[in-house]
Amino acid sequence: MRDMDKFPAPVATPQAAETELNQQLLGWYDRNARTMPWRVSPADRARGLRPDPYRVWLSEVMLQQTTVAAVTEYFQRFTRRWPSVLDLAAAQDAEVMAEWAGLGYYARARNLLKCARVVAQELEGTFPDSYDALLKLPGIGPYTAAAVASIAFDRAETVLDGNVERVMARLHDIHDPLPAVKPVLKEHAGVLTPQLRPGDYAQAVMDLGATICTPKNPACGICPWRSPCQARIAGTAPELPKKTPKQPKPTRLGLAYLARRADGAWLLERRPDKGLLGGMLGWPGSEWNAAPDPRPPFEANWQDLGGEVRHTFTHFHLILQVKLAELPSGYNLSPGQELLTRHAFRPQDLPTVMRKAFDLWAGSEFNPGPNG
């Protein structure tokens, strides 16, 4: 008998188990990392290439409550037009809001500009590299501060998005519902966050949730954490994480008034900075409530377009009635209103609900066609 056989085999400690989980996940990520325009691949990071904090921050702000597929085109347009935080800080508000149109949650765009200008004017164009310093910037909350600190600067911060919440709930077979259980899931995620390669780890666990540990039909058979996953063992993975039922969304009503001058110019108004669609161009219209005031922006022969616009916001459903009239040639603009010529007007610069109203007109009998 060899001397070493006299001693029992070492028992795996929790720390050793966590290290093994990290190694398994990072090994999987090295082979399967998603390619994204804002991401530095694990191979390139290993060669010393560091992510651009501006691109990481911009992508994380865009990705809030928005899918990678929806964000990619916007990110590419933004970085072509404003390749650095200094370029973005110097941009006109209206131009940035127009480029953001259609991405939704427009307060993000306003905060984007505020943050870029603080970084440009007070920090000499350099993003801070710590969670606490990032958290002090406008529009950056705990998740974004952790993500930028981790991904851009390799800080061992706990990054917890919806994908990570799902992975943690399943890995530990946690049945308490979100959002109340979020602190518990963050604690589990924090225990697993390594000191070595934390930026790659943060992206790896998010990729795991996005591509394998998906909300429906998780691909447990090819998951690098298949063996230790408690929900897979219990057969409960598809039903996790559980969520507290949401209250039904109310429905609000409104009117939108499309006014077009004989030469094709459109009357629009810029919404107040605070509030829904703040800072965006849109059609003059009523408040959105149960009984909107039907008074139009000016007296005219307003025609109903014969349809309605339906749109869902975070907290309510909206049904818009859309009316059309010819704008008098001598019309005097009211505060907040703008007149855009047919060549300056771009429907894609409108937020989605306003563009739906334009599309209703474009498909109606009132559209004179390309020459009208």
Rank of each mutant, 00 (worst) to 15 (best):
D3N: 10
A9C: 03
V11I: 14
V11Q: 13
A12K: 13
P14M: 08
Q15A: 15
T19E: 15
L21S: 12
R34H: 00
T35P: 04
P37Q: 02
P42W: 04
A46L: 13
R47E: 14
G48V: 10
L49R: 15
P53E: 04
M62G: 11
V71T: 14
R77S: 14
V85G: 09
L86P: 01
D87F: 01
L88F: 06
A91K: 13
V96E: 08
E99K: 11
W100K: 08
G104E: 06
A109H: 02
A116V: 07
V119K: 04
T126A: 15
A133G: 04
L137M: 07
P142I: 05
A147C: 08
S150T: 09
T158R: 04
G162N: 05
N163S: 09
M168Y: 01
A169D: 11
D176E: 15
V181P: 00
K182N: 12
A189M: 10
T193K: 02
L196I: 13
R197P: 07
Y201V: 11
A202V: 05
I212W: 03
P215A: 09
K216W: 04
N217I: 09
P218Y: 03
A219Q: 15
P224E: 11
W225A: 11
R226G: 08
I233K: 14
P238F: 06
E239C: 10
K243G: 10
K246S: 15
P250N: 07
L253Y: 11
R261L: 07
A262M: 06
G264M: 02
L268V: 05
L281P: 02
E287A: 15
A290S: 13
P294K: 06
N301E: 15
D304V: 04
H317T: 00
K323N: 12
A325E: 05
L333P: 03
G336A: 00
E338W: 02
E338Y: 00
E338T: 02
H343M: 05
P347W: 00
D359A: 13
L360I: 03
W361P: 02
F366R: 05
